[in-house]
């Protein structure tokens, strides 16, 4: 297979699988919306899924270097800013990221 054909096929495969994973659950889950079970899951899931994504992005930031202290401090800055200064996401994310970038670039 030529290189452009390889890239094009790979892109098509990625597109079809990704869209299917996002679309199929709507068709499957809609009839179940009324059930007590699906209702409980819908209210329990978001906080947990967000916590898992947080942990996984934190893990990514820790990869390739010894930055546990920097990351812990930056997470603390983000949390404190968010809770103390009225949950202004842009501000909390900005200050948290800035502290990590500054700490990571100190030799």
């Amino acid at each position: 297979m030529s290189q452009p054909a390889y890239f094009a096929t790979a892109l098509a495969i990625v597109f079809v699988i990704t869209v299917a994973l996002r679309a199929v659950p709507f068709a499957v889950l809609r009839p179940l919306r009324e059930s007590e079970f699906v209702g409980s899951l819908a209210s329990w899931m978001p906080a947990g899924i967000l916590a898992i994504l947080t942990a996984s992005t934190l893990r990514t930031s820790l990869e390739g270097g010894d930055r546990v202290a920097e990351a812990s401090l930056a997470v603390a800055v983000t949390v404190v800013t968010h809770l103390a200064l009225g949950r202004r996401t842009l501000l909390s994310v900005g200050l948290g990221t800035m502290s990590f970038v500054v700490l990571a670039n100190i030799p």
Binding site: T54, A74, T89, S92, V93
Partner: peptide, 26 residues
């Protein structure tokens, strides 16, 4: 270290999703 922005974002979103104590078990 710019990629940390994504982590910081998820931290704030998790805090926003956990406003009540009912979310603690999750």
């Amino acid at each position: 270290g710019l990629e940390f922005a994504l982590c910081a974002l998820f931290v704030t979103l998790t805090l926003d999703a956990c406003r009540t104590r009912r979310q603690v078990p999750s």
